[in-house]
């Protein structure tokens, strides 16, 4: 039996801005089973990072519920939250910005161990630092190196080691490989995959690179302007995308194979402002198939086949 690790229901995060209410995340629901990878994709500003941060309560959700191993994260008190913060870790896109430049590799990895009283005594801490370095593939000779002396891939490995120091169950990876060269990117993806197998980790993998999630994720959730518009097992999503936005997104990906060119759907315009949104499908202004219904009221996520969810008034027109 598969076990649900994370259950997100109607998660909403609004920001109050001088120009009005900004709908960063607007009623997002999904579940992730233990040991699985959920990829979250979508254009810049669609709310991927905010979703990740709201789950960890780094942004206090405006409304909605987040159940981690059955416990409601949003209702957790201070002590419970402390444990939850260990269970759920975050890895960022720019490892450089998140690492203290004055600390050497060993200090950077030691810091979370000491701060959270994870290891006892000098000897145990020392041993764990070395284990973690080994686990993420940082050579021992880098023990005293500083972040600025390292390339992006190694800096990202430090970020991963720091997250692993907490012995988490869930890691939210926010664009962890976006700033890296392809060969380094592949090294880090392989590392994350190995760690998942070895430690039974569960990931939320946020990215705008669909080919990366295609490789790495079990399920993929597509977001548009704060809404989840489609979610399906990875292969299903790539083979049978239903939402017009998912289709356009997939068709825009350049493929490094000659003659592989598919019919490209060039989308009109750009993602609209997330402020003071009307009750309508968010994608309707750019959608070639939008009808009166789409402009009159918003649509809800429906399960159209087992595990395949779509939020589109007209989905029946797009499946055979």
């Amino acid at each position: 039996m598969s076990e649900v690790l994370l259950d997100v229901r109607n998660l909403t995060k609004f920001f109050q801005t001088p120009r009005g209410t900004l709908h960063a995340v607007d009623g997002v629901s999904f579940t992730i089973e233990k040991g699985k990878v959920l990829g979250i994709v979508g254009e810049s500003g669609c709310g991927k990072s905010t979703t990740g941060r709201a789950i960890l309560r780094l942004h206090e959700p405006t409304s909605g519920e987040v159940f981690f191993e059955g416990r409601d994260v949003c209702k957790a008190n201070k002590t419970e939250m402390k444990q939850l913060r260990r269970d759920m870790q975050l890895i960022f896109q720019d490892p450089f910005a998140s690492l203290d430049p004055r600390m050497a590799v060993n200090e950077l990895i030691r810091e979370p161990l000491i701060r959270n009283h994870i290891t006892k005594g000098k000897a145990e801490t020392e041993k764990r630092v070395k284990e973690l370095m080994d686990l993420v593939g940082l050579a021992e000779r880098l023990y005293n190196a500083y972040p600025h002396e390292l390339d992006g891939g190694r800096r990202q490995r430090i970020g991963i080691a720091r997250a692993l120091a907490m012995e988490p169950k869930l890691i939210v990876c926010d664009e962890p490989v976006s700033a890296l060269d392809v060969s380094i990117q592949a090294q880090v993806i392989n590392l994350l995959a190995d760690l998942q197998e070895e430690l039974g980790l569960t990931y939320i993998f946020i990215t705008h690179d669909l080919s990366v999630v295609y490789y790495f994720a079990d399920d993929i959730a597509v977001m548009y302007l704060g809404k989840l518009v489609e979610k399906a097992p990875a292969e299903e999503l790539f083979k049978n995308p239903v939402h017009p936005y998912t289709k356009a997104l997939l068709s825009a990906i350049p493929i490094p194979v000659l003659g592989a060119k598919k019919d490209r759907i060039v989308m009109r315009g750009e993602i609209t402002s997330p402020i003071n949104l009307p009750d309508a499908c968010r994608f309707a202004p750019r959608c070639d198939f939008a009808c009166e219904d789409c402009k009159a009221h918003d649509c809800a996520l429906e399960e159209i086949s087992p595990g395949h969810f779509v939020a589109c008034h007209r989905w029946r027109n797009f499946v055979e």
Binding site: S183, Q185, A186, I189, N190, S211, Y214, I253, P256
Partner: peptide, 19 residues
């Protein structure tokens, strides 16, 4: 090596990337 490092959409998902 560049080609092998690249995740190709629609490729074989069970194959690991070869950086």
């Amino acid at each position: 090596g560049l080609f092998n490092s690249l995740p190709v959409m629609g490729g074989d998902r069970s194959q690991k990337l070869k950086p």
